[in-house]
């Protein structure tokens, strides 16, 4: 048997090949990291203004639950309004549902059940527009004095087109970081923002559909 059979042969460009391989690997990893950190994000919330707050990214737990219930109330309240005014006498003033009406409809977040307790036992107040004065044009439901730590206050404002204070019968949900707060002076956006209220913006399904499928 020959002892000269084993000979190690190195390619002339081995050093460059190793360097090129490392470089390509580094480039691929960087490209992947860039993709994951930018294009590969799973959520893409729209940008919001300083006077707004996102229910999706800024809230959690009880405040998120209360907001989502109020978000459903936006659909329900016009129907209940019709119900409670159905048998009004001629000339009788139409009124927005009071807090007892909400108990009858089992409507969260107003309805007093164990879930209401678990979510901080928030106290609700209704302010209806008066015949004259600054409050005219806005009905407001204030939720405040929650029992949980770091809990905020909520305000549901309902603008009335007939009073000329709003462009439409808009229902907006506002949030204030203070757990205990008084009924605001008015439902005007500027007033509320000045007092530290923030308009809550949901991340709704239509936005997510646009993110997934494009415009």
């Amino acid at each position: 048997m020959s002892t000269e059979a084993l000979q190690l042969v190195r390619p002339t460009g081995s050093r460059y090949e190793t360097f090129a391989l490392l470089l390509i690997t580094a480039l691929l990893i960087s490209a992947q990291m860039w993709y994951v950190s930018t294009l590969g994000r799973q959520t893409s919330e729209e940008e919001i203004y300083a006077w707004q707050v996102s229910s999706f990214s800024s809230f959690e737990g009880a405040d998120q639950a209360i907001y989502n219930s109020l978000f459903t109330v936006k659909d329900e309240i016009p129907y209940i309004y019709d119900d409670v005014n159905m048998f009004n006498e001629p000339g009788e003033k139409f009124h927005w549902p009071n807090l007892q009406d909400f108990q009858d409809y089992l409507l969260p977040p107003f309805y007093h059940d164990i879930s209401w307790e678990q979510n901080g036992s928030v106290g609700w107040l209704l302010y209806e527009p008066v015949a004259e004065g600054e409050m005219q044009g806005y009905s407001m439901y204030l939720g405040t004095n929650g029992m949980l730590e770091n809990q905020g206050s909520f305000l549901l404002t309902i603008g009335h087109v007939h009073a000329g204070f709003s462009n439409n019968n808009s229902l907006d949900i506002w949030w204030h970081p203070q757990r205990s707060i008084d009924m605001p002076e008015s439902g005007f956006k500027d007033t509320l923002v000045r007092q530290g209220w923030q308009l809550v913006v949901p991340y709704s399904g239509d936005k997510e559909v646009k993110r997934i499928f494009g415009e």
């Binding site: 799973q42 919330e45 999706f56 639950a65 989502n68 399904g205 239509d206």
Partner: peptide
């Protein structure tokens, strides 16, 4: 889900806010 206010999945160890699509296991 067009008019549904979505929430992130709970307890994500990374803290990422990822949309939870299970909107139908709820009442609200």
């Amino acid at each position: 889900n067009d008019g549904v206010s979505l929430i992130p999945i709970a307890g994500d160890p990374s803290g990422a806010k990822v949309v939870n699509p299970h909107t139908f296991i709820s009442t609200v």
